[in-house]
Amino acid sequence: MAAGGDHGSPDSYRSPLASRYASPEMCFVFSDRYKFRTWRQLWLWLAEAEQTLGLPITDEQIQEMKSNLENIDFKMAAEEEKRLRHDVMAHVHTFGHCCPKAAGIIHLGATSCYVGDNTDLIILRNALDLLLPKLARVISRLADFAKERASLPTLGFTHFQPAQLTTVGKRCCLWIQDLCMDLQNLKRVRDDLRFRGVKGTTGTQASFLQLFEGDDHKVEQLDKMVTEKAGFKRAFIITGQTYTRKVDIEVLSVLASLGASVHKICTDIRLLANLKEMEEPFEKQQIGSSAMPYKRNPMRSERCCSLARHLMTLVMDPLQTASVQWFERTLDDSANRRICLAEAFLTADTILNTLQNISEGLVVYPKVIERRIRQELPFMATENIIMAMVKAGGSRQDCHEKIRVLSQQAASVVKQEGGDNDLIERIQVDAYFSPIHSQLDHLLDPSSFTGRASQQVQRFLEEEVYPLLKPYESVMKVKAELCL
Rank of each mutant, 00 (worst) to 15 (best):
G5R: 06
D6R: 11
G8E: 15
G8N: 15
G8R: 15
S9I: 15
D11S: 09
S19E: 15
S23Y: 07
S23P: 05
S23F: 08
E25T: 14
F28A: 08
F30G: 02
D32C: 11
Y34C: 12
T38L: 08
W39N: 06
L44R: 04
A47Q: 01
E50M: 07
T52N: 10
L53T: 10
L55E: 10
P56L: 13
P56E: 12
P56K: 11
I57M: 03
I57N: 00
T58E: 11
D59Q: 09
E60Y: 10
E64R: 06
M65T: 04
E70L: 15
E70S: 11
E70W: 10
F74V: 14
K75Y: 12
A77W: 08
A77H: 15
A77V: 15
K82N: 12
K82H: 12
R83T: 11
R83K: 10
R85N: 03
R85M: 14
H86Y: 00
M89I: 04
V92A: 13
H93L: 08
T94P: 01
F95W: 14
F95R: 00
H97L: 14
C99L: 10
P100R: 09
P100I: 09
A102F: 03
A102M: 04
I105V: 12
I105L: 09
S112K: 00
C113M: 05
C113P: 04
D120P: 01
D120C: 07
L121Q: 10
I123P: 02
R125V: 08
L128E: 08
D129A: 12
L132H: 13
P133C: 13
V138F: 15
R141D: 04
R141Q: 05
A143E: 04
E148I: 11
E148K: 12
E148D: 13
A150M: 08
A150L: 07
A150S: 11
T154S: 12
L155E: 01
T158W: 02
H159W: 00
F160S: 06
Q161V: 00
Q164A: 10
T166D: 00
K170N: 01
C172F: 01
W175P: 03
I176Y: 01
D178K: 04
M181Q: 09
L183M: 10
L186A: 10
R188V: 02
D191S: 11
L193M: 14
R194K: 13
F195K: 00
G197T: 02
V198Q: 01
K199C: 08
G200T: 06
T201I: 04
G203R: 00
Q205Y: 00
S207E: 01
S207G: 13
L209R: 10
L211D: 06
D215K: 15
V219R: 01
V219C: 06
E220P: 03
E220L: 09
Q221T: 10
M225V: 12
V226R: 02
E228V: 11
E228S: 12
G231Q: 09
G231E: 08
F232P: 04
A235K: 09
I237K: 10
T239L: 08
T242D: 06
T242G: 06
T242V: 09
V247W: 11
D248C: 06
I249D: 07
V251D: 02
L255Y: 02
G259C: 10
A260T: 02
V262W: 05
K264I: 02
C266M: 15
I269Y: 05
L272K: 05
M278Y: 04
M278N: 02
M278T: 05
E279Y: 05
F282G: 13
E283Y: 08
Q286H: 01
Q286D: 00
I287E: 01
I287H: 00
I287P: 02
S290N: 06
K295E: 03
N297H: 02
M299E: 00
E302T: 05
R303A: 03
H310P: 01
H310Y: 09
L311N: 00
T313K: 06
L314P: 05
V315T: 09
M316T: 13
L319V: 08
T321A: 03
R329L: 04
T330E: 02
D332C: 02
D332F: 06
D332V: 02
N336I: 14
R337V: 02
C340Q: 04
C340E: 04
C340P: 00
C340A: 14
L341P: 06
A344C: 03
F345P: 03
I351N: 05
L352M: 15
L352V: 09
N353V: 09
L355K: 00
L362A: 08
V363L: 14
V364S: 04
Y365E: 02
Y365V: 08
P366Y: 03
P366S: 03
P366T: 07
E370C: 08
E370P: 05
R371T: 06
I373P: 00
I373W: 05
R374E: 03
E376G: 02
F379D: 01
M380V: 05
A381E: 11
T382Q: 08
E383D: 03
E383Y: 06
N384T: 09
V390L: 03
S395I: 00
R396K: 01
Q397M: 05
D398I: 13
E401I: 07
E401H: 14
V405S: 12
L406S: 05
Q409E: 11
A410C: 07
A411K: 08
V413A: 11
E417H: 01
G419N: 10
G419M: 10
N421M: 08
N421Q: 03
I424Y: 14
I424C: 14
R426G: 04
I427D: 01
V429R: 15
D430W: 05
D430G: 04
D430P: 02
S434N: 09
H437C: 10
D441W: 07
H442L: 12
L443V: 15
L443W: 08
D445L: 12
S447M: 15
S447R: 14
A453Q: 00
S454G: 13
Q456A: 09
V457N: 06
E464F: 05
Y466Q: 13
Y466S: 12
Y466W: 14
L469Q: 02
E473S: 14
V475G: 15
M476F: 15
K477S: 10
V478F: 14
